[in-house]
């Protein structure tokens, strides 16, 4: 897909708001399921307080760093083929080649993905997923939804996560025992993330007066920035302009 047709598709996805000058990114929240979402959000926060946060503290404290790094490297490496496929679907062939090179490099020289020498040779991870592919195909982001355990999403991104999970060859091809280990391993990397950005997540979940709004605002801005690709000057906020009014 050439940039022109893709850009037109992007315009269609974003609607007029995305193309208008200086839109307020918080004014375009589509949250028809707010009541249900808030209930799920509250359940997630309570699960975090009682289980995930204490468990992640224990994981990072008691499990040696070298094990955590190896595990993260292996899990990340296993995800690369599916990421490369998504880059191809998005027409991003340079990113696809880069990702294939990264995977080959780490699988062979990184001892099956335990190590990550690729990053040191400028083959850093370029993560994407089926949600972003759908976005490229012109699928609207859809209403905001809060997923149990996983948190903020939209209908399109939730579908993307679902497809990502089942399109990962290691969750469907290999014997169940092995894929179970992979699922547990993936869970442990998420647990580690919870601790790595502990005080940032704490401040959204526990310090914000309305943590539901704080999480929703941050997530939707992140998603739209991804759709935009890079920050455009037209879309930058201009608080000084109000002074002149």
């Amino acid at each position: 897909m050439g940039w022109k047709s893709r850009s037109l598709a992007a315009c269609a996805v974003l609607g007029l708001a995305g193309c208008a000058a200086n839109p307020d990114p918080t004014s375009t929240v589509f949250d028809p399921f707010e009541e249900q979402n808030r209930a799920t959000h509250n359940a997630n926060v309570s699960l975090d307080r009682n289980v995930v946060r204490p468990f992640s503290k224990g994981y990072v404290t008691y499990v040696p760093e070298i094990f955590r790094i190896f595990l993260r490297n292996v899990i990340t490496n296993l995800e690369q083929p599916a990421i490369a496929v998504n880059h191809v679907l998005q027409g991003e062939f340079e990113d696809a080649g880069h990702t294939v090179a990264r995977f080959s490099f780490n699988t062979v020289l990184g001892l099956g993905g335990l190590l990550d020498p690729a990053t040191d040779f400028q083959f850093e991870e370029r993560r994407t997923g089926f949600g972003e592919t759908l976005e490229d195909f012109g699928v609207n982001e859809g209403p905001y939804v809060v997923l149990p355990f996983l948190g903020p999403s939209t209908e399109r991104e939730a579908l993307g996560r679902f497809v990502d999970f089942f399109s990962n060859p290691y969750t469907s091809i290999v014997p169940t025992t092995v894929s179970n280990y992979i699922i547990v391993g993936t869970g442990l990397t998420l647990v580690e993330d919870r601790q790595t950005f502990g005080s940032t997540i704490d401040s959204v979940f526990y310090d914000s007066e309305d943590s539901y709004i704080a999480a929703r605002t941050a997530y939707l801005q992140f998603l739209r920035a991804r759709a935009e690709g890079e920050t455009t000057i037209e879309n930058l906020e201009d608080p000084y302009a109000d002074l002149l009014e």
């Binding site: 893709r6 850009s7 193309c19 993560r127 991804r226």
Partner: peptide
């Protein structure tokens, strides 16, 4: 450079 620059809207260019 995960996201390419060519996704900006046509009107922007």
């Amino acid at each position: 450079p995960t996201y390419s620059n060519d996704r900006t809207c046509f009107s922007r260019r």
